[in-house]
Amino acid sequence: MEAIPTLLAVITITFFLLRLAPGGPFADERDLSPQAQAAMEAHYGLDQPLVMQYFRYLGNLARGDLGPSFRYPTRTVNEIIVDHFPVSLELGAWGLLVALSLGLGAGLLAAAYRQRPQDHTIMTLAMVGICLPTFVLGPFLVYIFSLQLGWFNVGGWSHWSDRILPGFVLGSFFAAYVARLTRNGVGESVLMDYYRTALAKGLSKRQALWKHALKPGILPTIAFLGPAAAGLLTGSFVVESVFNIPGLGQQFINAAFGRDFTVVTGLVILYAVLILFFNLTVDFLQALLDPKLRES
């Protein structure tokens, strides 16, 4: 329920922040005559007082209408979202899949070999993902796998194989965090009494890890998924631009640079809703897995 005031705050801040900004959506290298400028402003209702514009925006929003785009004048913000959001969502899903599979795997392995050379090797490898900006890793992998080996397309989002490199680049960043959280979480439960008891009862190390260390050890990872979802979103700004993917992240950056007020506001609202939604989901998952939380 708190979501609504939060959203309202986001909308209000974004709306007024953008109008404070220098540079309008109609600036162009070719000068716009005063008549034309007036005509354009009247067309988009920008000639009305700011407060009026604000309430009109809220009114339209209540009806689910995010308004027209200024830079792509024949498209509406709703259409832009419908066009590009599925792409970003899919990219994010691939990224999450990579982050979880690589991260959990590496983290579990490292925990099993805690404080031994294997542990250090795995964790160092996993950490490379958070030590190189995605705008280096991306072009570098493209150079190797697309230009030198010719396995993948350089960019785009048409063939199914176009998902592999971007998904990997986006995911590897979060894989490092997941690996670290899992290693530490599982590593700690490995030291707990119940785990030792399980081993003493004759379970194999693998069985004991799986049954008694994984579930409690994975909780921090799940708590991390909330911020990770937000991060995947921003991460996709870079990945989409590196791989020329027609996703929403690029739209957002271009709109912010191009002063496309309605698109920026619409996308900020969408992002806020998404993050709220993810945090709720994470709370729910945590409650499901953690008996202590469930009781309270």
């Binding site: 220098p22 540079g23 640079f257």
Partner: peptide
């Protein structure tokens, strides 16, 4: 940025 630059 382009739009700001033009305005300036």
């Amino acid at each position: 940025e382009w739009q700001v630059y033009l305005e300036t």
